[in-house]
Simulated assay, not measured.
Amino acid sequence: MHDSDISQEMIDEAKRNPNGWVYKIDCKYPDGDNIPPEAIEGAWRVNESGEIFEDFVKNDSYRPIEKSRRILPKFMRMKHPSQAHHWMIEFDLRCLHLFPKIPKEAYVGYWLIGDDGAPNGYFRPTSTYDPEAVTKILESIKY
């Protein structure tokens, strides 16, 4: 990242947040949506005067959005018109019975919901999905 990657919006954000950080996020998230760590490319440190003053720090958890050709589970293909432009989590289906307390290790990724309320094929993998950890979690559950 270069200084030229710092937009006026980022400079304004720094002024509003002295002694903090300005984050580079690769797409817009609707108000109220939690931004997953995988969407944050990195950040710049902000000094007490509200100025960006250090080099860009890359986020090792960042995962770019990809156009996926994967087939979604049937229940995820349903339309959710009120969720247009939001992200829907996909998780390891072996954990379906744990809903709503799905462990982060079982989060496969996020699907973007399009204008029509259906997933539009844009997918962001998570940095936490670990099929082996999911297997261990499931084996440790006492039924």
Rank of each mutant, 00 (worst) to 15 (best):
P125D: 03
P125W: 04
K24R: 15
S49P: 00
G109D: 02
W44A: 04
M88C: 03
I40H: 15
E41K: 15
N47R: 01
M76E: 06
P125R: 04
F91D: 02
D55A: 03
R70T: 09
I6V: 05
W87K: 05
P30C: 09
P36M: 13
P81R: 06
I35L: 07
N47K: 01
A106F: 11
Y129N: 03
L112V: 03
F56K: 14
D92S: 02
N34H: 09
I40R: 14
E54L: 00
I6T: 09
P37D: 15
K101D: 07
K67S: 02
E54F: 00
G50M: 05
K24N: 12
P73Q: 10
I137G: 15
K104P: 02
F91P: 02
P100G: 01
A39K: 02
Y23C: 06
G32D: 05
T126G: 01
G50I: 02
L138Y: 08
D55V: 02
P64Q: 08
N47F: 01
E90A: 04
I141N: 09
N120A: 11
E105G: 02
I11D: 15
K15T: 06
Q8K: 11
E48N: 13
P64E: 09
W21F: 11
V22L: 11
K24A: 11
P37C: 10
G42Q: 15
W111M: 05
I11P: 10
P37R: 14
H80P: 06
L96R: 10
T128W: 14
E132I: 06
K67T: 01
Y29P: 06
K67F: 01
N17P: 14
M1Y: 14
S127I: 06
H86N: 14
E38L: 12
S61T: 12
L72M: 11
I137M: 13
K101Q: 05
I137Y: 13
I113N: 11
A133T: 07
T128M: 05
I6W: 14
I65Q: 12
I89R: 03
E48V: 07
S68M: 00
G50H: 04
N17L: 12
K15L: 05
F91E: 04
I25N: 09
A118F: 08
Q83I: 03
Y110E: 07
V108M: 10
C27E: 15
S68I: 00
K67C: 02
M76T: 05
P103S: 01
G117A: 08
K101E: 09
H80E: 09
S4R: 13
R124M: 01
S4T: 11
D130T: 04
V134N: 08
P73C: 10
R16M: 11
H85E: 14
H86F: 08
G50E: 03
P131W: 10
D116K: 13
F53G: 05
I113C: 04
G42M: 14
K24C: 10
K101L: 14
K101H: 13
R124E: 00
V57L: 08
G114T: 06
A39G: 01
E38H: 13
H86S: 10
E48K: 14
T135Y: 15
D31K: 12
F53K: 11
P103L: 01
Y143R: 14
D26C: 15
